[in-house]
Computed example of a mutant assay.
Amino acid sequence: MKIALVHDYLTQRGGAERVFELFCKRYPGADIFTSLYDSEHTIDLGNRQVHTTILQNIPKSSRHFRLLAPFYFPAFRALDLQDYDLIISSSSSFAKCVRKRPGAIHICFCHNVTRFLWDTKTYLREYAKFKKMSPVLEIIFKYLRKVDLYYSQEPDYYIANSSIVARRIQKIYRKPASVINYPIDSNQFIFSEKKDDFYLVSARLMSYKRVDVIIEAFNWLGWPLRIAGTGPERGRLESKALKNIQFLGHVSDAERSLLMAQARSVIVAALEDYGLVPVEANASGTPVIAYGQGGILDTQVPGKTGVLFNRQSPDAIHAALLEASEIAWDYAEIRNHALRNFSEEVFFKKVDQVIEEVYRLYKP
């Protein structure tokens, strides 16, 4: 069986890219396709050939990839995938629209519906530099929503990373979706029952991550907080933080793993579609203090693996931190929870079952 793996763009190393990396390792003989590829800033694909679209030829395209939004659909449609029996797309926007030959199967692992089209206000709030262009963008986005809906029918089957994303796929694309929570590479994380006297945030410093309310809560408490990550919000956030809060900037995977294992808790204040960070923390034996909406509800057991708060506010985080400090955490059981439910072995066992079922349903 000839397999094609397709991802929206490989220009960064986020959660979606880390999951795609696992697929590439799982299927070493598969061919890899994407719109744009920047080997220095994305997942390590070794010597694998990466097939890109015509957009790769545009100067500085990987740096300004968001500006190319109207051109991704035709670029992916132009890819020649006629020789492949199985297409696995990893998509939160465009990769789902690739063409397949009659009789081939296309399964889309959907990280989200196309967010900038269906949650435009939030998107523009995060990228303030585009806000002045909003009247023009809305005209473009209105057209692109129709295109997105049309091409959303291309995959034979959808797999969502969380229950909330499955509901969005059903609501917007009118397609059913199975839920398979995405895994982490447990070998990358160190288990430790000895916790140091600090808390950790590991996130891109974007407005929707709500690191600002975490900082305010720690300003009140005076407890030590370390923040790993970079982003456009860093300057503003540093100006709000007191001396008990340390900004680490970009850290290596090895440094991040050590921080995860040593922290008393990892704090997450964003409404995440899924969120790998809480699962990564659990794989390190570390409890999570998180906003109790979205994908977090698929991965955490309150009182066992973490504490959830119900408002994105400093006082709610403050209360959750105090509650967590009173719990006698079973760090080994926290790690076992992650390994039982979110290992690669568990994930791909479910994936194989879905692929077999889809072949029974759709193969001529």
Results as ranks from 00 to 15, higher is better:
218 F>N: 02
218 F>K: 03
218 F>E: 03
218 F>H: 04
219 N>S: 08
219 N>Q: 08
220 W>T: 15
220 W>G: 05
221 L>C: 06
221 L>E: 11
222 G>D: 11
222 G>T: 14
223 W>Q: 04
223 W>L: 12
223 W>A: 06
224 P>L: 08
224 P>Q: 14
225 L>Q: 01
225 L>R: 01
225 L>P: 01
225 L>K: 02
226 R>F: 14
226 R>W: 13
226 R>Q: 15
227 I>S: 01
227 I>W: 00
227 I>G: 00
227 I>C: 02
228 A>V: 12
228 A>T: 09
228 A>D: 08
229 G>F: 00
230 T>Q: 07
230 T>N: 10
231 G>Y: 03
231 G>E: 02
232 P>M: 06
232 P>V: 06
233 E>D: 12
234 R>M: 11
234 R>E: 13
235 G>T: 11
235 G>P: 06
235 G>M: 06
236 R>P: 04
236 R>N: 11
237 L>K: 01
237 L>C: 05
237 L>P: 03
238 E>A: 05
239 S>V: 08
239 S>F: 11
239 S>T: 12
239 S>Q: 14
239 S>E: 14
240 K>Q: 15
240 K>P: 07
241 A>R: 05
241 A>V: 11
241 A>Q: 11
241 A>T: 10
242 L>F: 08
242 L>I: 08
242 L>D: 11
243 K>V: 07
243 K>C: 09
243 K>G: 13
244 N>C: 14
244 N>Q: 11
245 I>V: 11
245 I>S: 00
245 I>Q: 00
245 I>N: 00
245 I>W: 00
245 I>D: 00
246 Q>N: 14
246 Q>A: 12
247 F>L: 05
247 F>A: 01
247 F>Y: 05
247 F>Q: 01
247 F>G: 00
248 L>E: 04
248 L>P: 06
248 L>N: 03
249 G>T: 14
250 H>M: 07
251 V>N: 03
251 V>R: 04
251 V>Q: 04
251 V>W: 04
251 V>T: 12
252 S>R: 07
252 S>F: 01
252 S>Y: 03
253 D>V: 13
254 A>E: 13
254 A>N: 15
254 A>P: 14
254 A>Y: 13
254 A>I: 11
255 E>V: 14
255 E>P: 10
255 E>Y: 09
256 R>E: 06
256 R>K: 14
256 R>T: 05
257 S>Q: 05
257 S>K: 07
257 S>W: 03
257 S>A: 15
257 S>L: 05
257 S>I: 07
257 S>P: 04
257 S>F: 04
258 L>H: 15
258 L>N: 14
259 L>Y: 04
259 L>K: 01
259 L>P: 06
260 M>I: 07
260 M>G: 07
260 M>T: 08
260 M>S: 08
261 A>E: 02
261 A>C: 09
262 Q>L: 15
262 Q>H: 15
263 A>N: 08
263 A>K: 06
264 R>Y: 09
265 S>M: 09
265 S>V: 07
265 S>G: 14
266 V>H: 02
266 V>M: 07
266 V>C: 09
266 V>S: 03
267 I>P: 01
268 V>D: 02
268 V>A: 09
268 V>R: 00
268 V>H: 02
268 V>W: 00
269 A>R: 02
269 A>C: 07
269 A>E: 06
269 A>Y: 04
269 A>S: 09
270 A>E: 10
271 L>N: 13
271 L>V: 12
271 L>K: 09
271 L>R: 12
272 E>R: 05
272 E>K: 06
272 E>V: 11
272 E>D: 13
273 D>T: 13
